[in-house]
Design a protein around this nucleic acid. Structure first.
Lengths: 340, 340
DNA sequence: ACTGGCACTCGCTACAGTCGAGTGCCAGCA
DNA sequence: TGCTGGCACTCGACTGTAGCGAGTGCCAGT
């Protein structure tokens, strides 16, 4: 059953009105506020079809219509017109991101900016270690049997781990270790590192071997295998806008999901910079987020993504605006990273 | 006007019952559930006095009594009996904190543990840089005009900053710089560092001077002056327990306050490890938190605190239990830090 | 000084009635 | 065939009333 142009226009109008007013929209109001050129009765007929097809529904018999998840999906895919950012927004983005002193700062500023512009919850993934390469490895002696291993990645991420050595080790051995690991590993992607680390242990001279073995274990286990992904959150207070109407009355499941880093990573950590992913309500695999929508994309210095970012909000959100903002912010962050 | 022992016992009973049931408590219920040895009528007289003195109040004329902030204060100061941790809780704390791989991990585990045990929002401040001393400074060349400065503090904190040099600098100069700053600064407290950094610039040989000047600026401005404090949060979903009855219906102000790092730092970043601070409702200077209570303390490897931690919840909280848990967690974290 | 008894208050719930927004359907018209 | 105006109908939201019951304050009695 095809939907003709007018029916699509009706759906678009319903989505736009409902997003704006947060109230079920009736046929009369619709023809008043949009130039549809037909009477309310005609609109009602169209609405009946749209409802039959599952794009809209009635909360109660005597109420107006509300888009369903499927309706939003159609809207996003075929009906929404791109909404260019306002100059003010562009300026806000630029102003916000200059002057960041380090990666942490970049990520924090970004996530706050995104929350502020979209007025929703923002999530930013730190540049993924798996997609970073090693810029430098530093070994700092803490005691004779303890080293602090600091890894600096080309994305600016810095990770540190405590290494408990099996036996005391003199300072010049530490220097040797440092030289060796840097020679072998600098410049390699972390995801390709394991065989190199393995080789490092096997090739090492006997007196360094025990220390090198422990060091490699730490490297492999805590940095590479369970590659430590991280995220930053902001704007949770925005969940309370629309006073409990969104999210069917309880923020609890949303707040719980937001605290699960693994869940959030899965949500935002997939897309390439060029694509924007929109997950609407039910499409979400996380049960706790069945009442929410997520708009996410990747960011990176070039065409490949080093991390994801996005926002989470009620299914009743301004998709075109949100998508535009998420894209713009991701692009700016990518440029910022490219400068380093 | 003095409150005799029985009136205090009545207040204690009211607080305990209200905290447990979340419902205004009447005179009949009180005598049934506590061994007060008097009749409801007598309790009513006592209640009238307590109300006159501002320790309890009636939500409506025909309802039971509810403690006021002042009532909770009296309860916390004079009436609560210390509640020892259950063995299960002790075990949970130990289990949770072993196996942390680095400081970030310690902080994250701690904040989650605290949220889980108290079933409220937990806040943990990272060890304050101002109260840390320098363990090592590393300079990693990014390009000929860019260095990454990595500072490792004795508390395990690692901070990095990008340094844009005024002119290209050869590799051996970087080595010199690294040696110089480490010689002068390792072991000093960050709060005492400024004159040393100043001296470093003045004493440096001419060909290092420009680079050293920039480096010192970064050190002073971004690490020392606005000493970067950080916090970790967990358990925001716990705010939704007690379904909107706490926090007078809106989580918004609470969520907003939680996102303001400055606010949270002020709340939890004061006390010494030995003392526990309890701020009840109105006592809170932050307007957004007038409906909440905060229990906080300091933690550190020794007797002085390097950071604060605490929990935030409704004024109607289990103070004795929360205080005990916060103290215990702080002690364990202190021990953990002392081991490094 | 405490207690039992009693009148009183007032929030909560249930129920009935009204209002109005919005619908579905149908006959008529281009 | 497709659109429109008209009309009966539905049902949620709101209002007002009444009864219930938890809880209180007060008072006279022990």
């Amino acid at each position: 059953m095809g939907l003709d142009d007018r029916k699509l226009a009706v759906l678009r109008a319903i989505v736009e009105d409902y997003v704006a007013t947060q109230e079920p929209v009736g046929s009369r109001a619709l023809v008043e506020r949009h130039q549809l050129g037909v009477s309310p009765a005609t609109v009602r007929n169209d609405m009946a079809v749209l409802e039959e097809e599952g794009y809209i529904r009635q909360p109660h018999t005597s109420a107006g219509r509300v888009p369903t998840d499927r309706g939003y999906r159609l809207f996003v895919d075929r009906l929404s017109r791109v909404k260019p950012l306002s100059p003010a927004e562009r300026r806000a983005i630029e102003r916000f991101l200059v002057g960041a002193v380090d990666l942490d700062d970049v990520v924090h500023r970004t996530v706050r900016l995104l929350a502020q512009l979209t007025r929703q919850v923002a999530v930013v993934q730190y540049p993924s270690l798996a997609r970073s390469s090693v810029r430098h490895l530093e070994l700092v002696p803490i005691s004779t049997t303890r080293l602090m291993l600091v890894m600096i990645a080309d994305t600016g991420r810095v990770e540190q781990r405590l290494v408990e050595l099996p036996a005391p080790i003199p300072a010049d051995h530490v220097t040797d270790l440092r030289r060796l690991v840097n020679e072998k590993l600098v410049g390699t992607r972390l995801s390709e590192t394991p065989p190199l680390v393995q080789a490092l242990v096997e090739e090492s001279v006997p007196h360094l071997r025990p220390a090198m073995t422990t060091l490699s274990t730490v490297l492999l286990e805590t940095l590479i295998e369970r590659h430590e992904e991280r995220i930053a959150l902001a704007g949770t207070a925005n969940l309370t806008r629309g006073g409990l109407l969104d999210f069917q009355g309880s923020l609890r499941p949303i707040l719980e999901a937001l605290e699960e880093e693994v869940v959030m990573l899965k949500l935002i950590g997939e897309a390439e910079p060029s694509t924007t992913r929109v997950l609407i309500g039910d499409e979400n695999e996380v049960d706790n987020l069945r009442a929410a929508s997520v708009v996410s994309t990747g960011y990176g210095p070039g065409a490949t993504s080093v991390g994801g970012l996005g926002v989470l909000g009620p299914t009743r959100m301004d998709y075109p605006g949100t998508i535009a903002t998420v894209r713009a912010v991701a692009r700016y962050v990518g440029e910022l990273l490219a400068q380093n």
